[in-house]
Design a protein around this nucleic acid. Structure first.
Length: 435
RNA sequence: GGGGGGAUUCCAGAGCGGUCAAAUGGGGCAGACUGUAAAUCUGUUGGCUACGCCUUCGGAGGUUCGAAUCCUCCUCCCCCCA
């Protein structure tokens, strides 16, 4: 059996642990849960490492429990937030829960007939039954306000900040979040024999409220394990691009963009990420790192990382298409190559590229480049921006550099009889389609 | 309640009657180099029918030939003393 904690440690994701956790894991098959916040209808790659942690836990012979926060999502976790959160409506929450369930099922085995098959629970199922009075009598009585106020996530929102400014304060609703999450742990401890809660290091406070509650109310012993929050070597926030979050839902982030995100990982981060986000063995990873250091320009590490994560998240097919698209868009992307693509491949390659439309007859009349790209379509925000780009030699039309501001377009400029391909700089494509 | 300071272009932050579409830095975009990396260097960064015109310096008025700059009122923010 794989030593789960050792595994997390060499992968560099281990953060903190409550004493006794390792003994518990050695002693017996243990159930552990991680909570997922339904703040959106898809998880993004920030949650990916948590899902993988659950998966590793399962591979180590233990039983993972994925909790979707139907109840806690209604409240909002103050951890890591400097401002009071807006509440989600029930309708949005339900939609989000459904989306997240689907993604969790894709990663973790909830189906097969193994003793440690995964379970999914929704804390709304037990919290919605709770009356306020019952809750404050049965749960609130066991935890002191002093204890709750000592949490970092709460302290940061009260009194003065380091720079002397007043903290933003937090509502009773957010203050009570940790109790609700703590109760989840108690509930799962009592009903699902769940003895361990895992989460990001920002969850430590919430998790220990749970173990405390279990100790006081059930007289039981429960454990906590946290993983490091993933950071980038340049200090930027992990999982964000200019376009925002990188989502696991292919509708929100196309497999091509997803693949590109991982491919563009910096050298230092790639060494870290391949350990965290793949199931490759230590030997495999070490030899990859060594290969990469020998010939960094080949970017073997990034390619392998991107492959593993894309196949795992989407599919082998989606990965193949993403690689094809990358080849076409970055390497030998001659216009002839693009012209000879069949329609479905063409659409796959340009899936996720912003698309703009133009009336057929406008093009037949002939239209100037400035009007086409900055007036009729909004490929560029202003004509000035487009002029500047052309002056800097940064615009390509159908893969040919274009510097002529007077250029006029007609039907003869179409590729595949209905598109004009615009490229800004090296990698930013847009597609105009006639309608 | 009393006293003081401030609001400037994406952000930070100069400007304090004409030479201001507004210094400088950051960020963005592009070019060179390269590995679709990092670092570096270069250009660019309100709009347009472009050697000119239009819209911008919290909001509304006013003084002036001329205002981001002066005056009045309003809104919001911060600091100090109670």
């Amino acid at each position: 059996m794989i030593d789960f904690i050792e595994e997390l440690k060499w992968r560099g994701i281990f953060h903190d642990i409550m004493p006794g956790t390792d003994e518990q894991l050695e002693k017996e098959m243990t159930a552990a849960y991680i909570g997922f916040d339904p703040t959106s209808d898809s998880l993004h790659i920030g949650s990916l490492s948590q899902m993988i942690t659950l998966k590793r836990f399962q591979l180590a012979g233990h039983k993972p429990v994925a909790l979707v926060g139907g109840a806690t999502g209604m409240i909002g976790d103050p951890s890591g937030k400097s401002q009071e959160r807006n509440l989600l409506t029930t309708e949005i929450l339900n939609k989000n829960l459904a989306g997240i369930r689907k993604q969790l099922e894709h990663f973790i085995d909830f189906e097969s007939d193994i003793p440690n098959k995964a379970e999914m629970v929704n804390n709304y199922d037990w919290m919605s039954e709770f009356s306020f009075l019952e809750f404050i009598r049965d749960v609130g009585k066991h935890i002191s306000v002093n204890y709750m106020m000592a949490k970092d996530s709460v302290k940061k929102r009260m009194g003065k900040l380091d720079d002397g400014q007043d903290a933003s304060g937090l509502s009773f609703t957010e203050f009570s979040y940790q109790l609700v999450q703590g109760y989840d742990f108690l509930h799962l401890y009592q009903n699902n024999a769940c003895k361990l809660q895992m989460g990001g290091s920002d969850q430590w406070g919430n998790i220990t409220t749970g173990t405390e509650l279990i100790r006081r109310k059930a007289g039981g012993k429960a454990y906590a394990l946290t993983t490091k929050l993933i950071t980038k070597s340049d200090g930027g926030k992990f999982g964000k691009t200019e376009k925002g979050n990188v989502w696991l839902d292919p509708e929100k982030t196309s497999p091509y963009e997803f693949y590109q995100f991982w491919l563009n990982t910096s050298d230092e981060d790639a060494e870290q990420f391949i350990k965290i986000f793949t199931f490759l063995t230590q030997q495999e990873i070490e030899s990859l790192i060594e290969e990469h250091q020998q010939a960094p320009h080949n970017r073997r590490l990034q390619k392998r990382l991107a492959k593993e994560v894309t196949v795992m998240t989407h599919s082998q097919k989606a990965y193949d298409t993403a690689v094809d698209a990358s080849e076409i868009l970055f390497k030998n992307g001659s216009i002839d190559r693009i012209e000879t693509l069949d329609n479905s491949t063409f659409m796959a390659v340009f899936n996720g590229v912003p698309k703009f439309e133009i009336e057929k007859n406008e093009l037949e009349k002939g239209i100037s480049i400035l009007d086409l790209l900055a007036e009729k379509t909004k490929v560029f925000a202003s004509k000035g921006e487009l002029r500047r780009l052309m002056k800097d030699n940064g615009l390509s039309i159908n893969q040919e550099k274009e510097k002529n501001v007077e250029r006029v377009f007609t039907s003869s400029d179409l590729i595949k009889e209905k598109y004009i391909l615009i490229r800004q700089g090296k990698k930013k494509y847009s597609l105009i389609e006639i309608v």
